[in-house]
Amino acid sequence: FLIEKFLFFNRKDEFTIECPNVGELNKILIAHNNKGSAPGWFLDQILIEDVIAHHLYEFPCNRWLAKDEDDKEIARFLFPKKSTDHERQPVRNNQYKITVFTGKKTGAGTDADVFITLYGNLAETGPIKLESKKNSFESGKKDEFTIECPNVGELNKILIAHNNKGSASGWFLDQILIEDVNWHHLYEFPCNRWLAKDEDDKEIARFLFPKKTVTNSQYKIKSHFDITSSVFESFSVIFETQINANPHVRC
């Protein structure tokens, strides 16, 4: 992500960028293009606030990015400062809205208890029973549930299962939609198979994987600069995370 701005000696500058969500930040690359009459730059630190996830990262630097100072480098990887135990924020609960679509086949509905487990890049839940006051999981029907649990990060799979109880336990599941209410992200998990002891492969539990989607997140970047004179400078920030197949995400 290229940022263009006048940078001045001993001041703080703020930028807001919008780009695909990169998950939990584990490093950034900060660089400039060495243009201008005085391109040398002494960077104190960078703060990045993930506006959607309400998470603040601190990236200390305290070094030159200059061809004539320090190690002559104009690009540096920065790593987030580790929080001490007393600085750590309490675990935030997340809300997930789960919409279950039962198929329209004959006998598709189930009387069994249905459980879901969420797996994300940060954590996973245990089995959560999907409960409702009305008769759920009827043939051709849509059922909605809202659950609250610790944030699991970006969902990469779910486990959907039932306990095979009741007189008509076999279930044909069309698909499940999960909305991460806090992150404003919607996941679609296709199934289109039976969970039944007497149908298909006789399994009553299935792992489902999301269709690929891209959701934008907003990041607020605060940087502290020390530069020899006011110059028109360009610099770039590259986020790297643990959750993407291609870990380098350019915003």
Rank of each mutant, 00 (worst) to 15 (best):
K212T: 10
I158M: 11
I160E: 11
A205E: 14
K141M: 00
Q218H: 03
H162T: 05
K220Y: 04
T215S: 13
E148R: 13
W183K: 14
G170P: 00
Q175G: 15
N163D: 08
I147V: 09
N151P: 03
E179F: 01
H185C: 09
N164S: 02
L186T: 02
T146L: 08
P190Q: 01
D198F: 04
V152R: 05
L208T: 09
E148K: 15
F145S: 09
N156T: 12
P190C: 03
I204R: 11
E144Y: 15
H185Y: 04
K212L: 04
K142T: 12
E138I: 00
R193T: 05
E144P: 09
N192Q: 06
K197Q: 11
R206V: 07
I160T: 07
H185P: 01
A168K: 10
T146R: 04
S169T: 13
I221A: 06
C149V: 15
C149S: 07
G140D: 00
Y187T: 03
G170C: 10
T215K: 11
F207L: 06
N192M: 12
N151F: 06
S167L: 12
G166E: 14
W183D: 15
I158T: 12
K220C: 14
K220I: 01
D180I: 00
D198K: 01
E154K: 15
H162Y: 06
F207T: 05
W183P: 00
S217T: 05
F145T: 10
Q218Y: 03
L186Y: 10
Q218R: 14
H185N: 06
N163K: 07
D143W: 14
A196Q: 01
W194D: 00
N151I: 11
D201H: 06
V214R: 01
Q218C: 12
A168L: 12
S167I: 08
L208G: 11
S217Y: 15
L159N: 12
F145K: 14
K141I: 02
